[in-house]
Amino acid sequence: MILETTQQALQALFAGSVPADGAEAATPRGNGVITRNYKIHGYHLDAQVATDQLLAAVTILDHAGFFIESITGVDWIKENQMEVIYDFSRYDFDTCRVVIRTRVPRDQPLVPTISTIYAGANWHERETHDFFGIKFTGHPHLVPLLLPEDADFHPLLKDFKA
């Protein structure tokens, strides 16, 4: 089953640092892979990785034949962090939704681009850059997409005042 194999493959990224049970509730939680209750959350696997593990994790999913659903950010202003969430899903009937998330400090939001692996990440990353100001290093064309081309504000930041 794809769920188990993907979980194992992702788990291999965190050799030696398997999160304890009940990690689900902890916020912010440490890096690692946990399975989620699909009935409640709507996805199966939830992997939090460090930014330098991101490309490796996404490559695993690419080889396993996942397609990219979306990329988005969350501004955790209390923890002074920003989170980038990557959604992946499958075309076949072996349903498995995987969420990859990575956290970066709020004052230096640098995340490597995955548009080299998934071409479709291009717009999603541009959109996330528009809304949160997260910079995707290596992105070929990181200019505003949904906001005006001269926009220098990031409306989804929690301290954004219109």
């Binding site: 034949g65 397609f67 990219i68 659903e69 979306s70 075309y91 998934y118 071409a119 479709g120």
Partner: peptide
């Protein structure tokens, strides 16, 4: 394959 890469 293109659909997969773009999430179509």
């Amino acid at each position: 394959e293109m659909c997969r890469k773009y999430g179509a």
